[in-house]
Design a protein around this nucleic acid. Structure first.
Lengths: 234, 234
DNA sequence: CATAAGCTGTCATCTTCGTGTCATGTTAAA
DNA sequence: TTTAACATGACACGAAGATGACAGCTTATG
């Protein structure tokens, strides 16, 4: 369906290199792009400085224990919603539940089948139903279930139309959307508003994003429409 | 008006006072309310006359041996489903299995780590058809079997519809539920009430939750429906 | 059986908030 | 410069939701 290449980045935190490599291979083959890390503290740094869509976290890693890392993660404003799969050899039920209690979204027993790894990753990404995006230093996160958008973990107050508009523009980054297209998909095919109305709603959306220095994400393409862009100059 | 009696979450049956106290402290810190008892026969009385959500049972207690108490418990109609964690210094596998055979749901070796105690309690509560959730400082606990909900161990007086509504909203945290969805799943697919009725029931549910400062958990999503949220600003 | 108490659906009213339009200012292309 | 395209602020209407009252109905209680 979508031609958009998978901009999905997965961070694998795993100290046993062969296993990490195995994961990497299988996930790359499925089209994901991967970052590896073998140390807990380093992982924190990476998570703070970069942006990943999913975290594969081994329970037993040097530096910080997996659970500690997870707990830390859930306390970070901008990371608390990140999907996490715990990887551990401790297959006992109570251990698993303990991980889930701490906020892991899923659990992968070790040793694992490549297929199971892939299935869980895909399932979790599907389940999380978020769109996120890194613009300069900020992360925009659109939660389609909750119908809310966050920047750096801070909830934006978006009105229904503004939210749908953002959703629609982010759906296909960088593609220009005509006013008519937006009217059809955001307002609905059978609404009777004039094209200029789009301008006003774009304005309102921009105003909110501006509070986070992201107003320029929405680029006007004269004569054509609007486009969402993450390569803006600060 | 105040028919809501204080409800105790966990009964600890343990004759060694320091250990009992230790358990109490850690569980209270996690938001549970605790009752203590050092004698087997007295424990039976308490169990008959009060209502607990979980039983922490030491194997070696005066009056009745732990296993006897457990056996008795499983014969009582109203108690046979109660979640029980056996606490014992006898860490041998066969002893453990014996306890489980008699109907203990889980097993805690003595001495124990506070974390493990907590993890097992939480895990067992979860397994036994409860949903619980931490919002700010409060714990909301929904017991799907007993059809009742508690905040900080205090039983909420919820009318049937309100309870089902809460259940449904908590089932998938943070997901927006449309009025129609709620009508279908709370009122039932073939009921003939209008959508506005949902508003009123939400209002009534909120009013109850408000007594615990949790009224804001249920967020209105204009144009879409309602959503249960645990990220509320205090 | 009668009465009280408790649930729930509907309605009327009030409040808040979202949105479309217009008038005017600004920008960019030709 | 000229002009069409877009930005922006103001405003008013109306929709969506909140709230309180009430009546019908069921269930406990005597």
């Amino acid at each position: 369906m979508e031609k958009t290449l998978k901009k999905v980045d997965i961070l694998i935190v795993e100290d046993e290199a062969p296993i990490a490599r195995l994961m990497e291979i299988h996930l790359q083959r499925a089209g994901f792009s991967i970052a590896l890390c073998g140390d807990g503290h380093q992982a924190c740094q990476l998570l703070e400085q970069n942006h990943y869509r999913l975290l594969l976290l081994d329970r037993m890693i040097p530096g910080l224990r997996g659970l500690d890392l997870l707990r830390w993660l859930r306390k970070q404003k901008s990371l608390k919603k990140m999907p996490v799969i715990m990887v551990t050899a401790l297959a006992q039920t109570e251990e698993r539940i303990r991980g889930l209690n701490e906020g892991a979204d899923d659990y992968l027993p070790k040793p694992f089948e490549p297929d199971e790894l892939l299935a869980r990753v895909k399932a979790l990404l599907r389940r999380s139903n978020h769109q996120h995006l890194k613009v300069n230093q900020s992360i925009i996160d659109v939660d389609n279930d909750a119908q809310e958008a966050c920047v750096q973990g801070e909830r934006l107050h978006l009105r229904p139309l503004e939210f749908k508009l953002l959703q629609r523009l982010m759906k296909k980054m960088g593609k220009v959307r005509s006013r008519q297209y937006l009217l059809d998909h955001v307002w609905g095919i059978n609404s009777f508003v004039e094209e200029r109305t789009v301008d006003v709603t774009i304005k309102r959306l921009r105003k909110t994003l501006d509070k986070y220095g992201l107003g320029d994400c929405i680029v006007t393409v004269r004569g054509s429409g609007y486009r969402f862009d993450n390569k803006i100059k600060p």
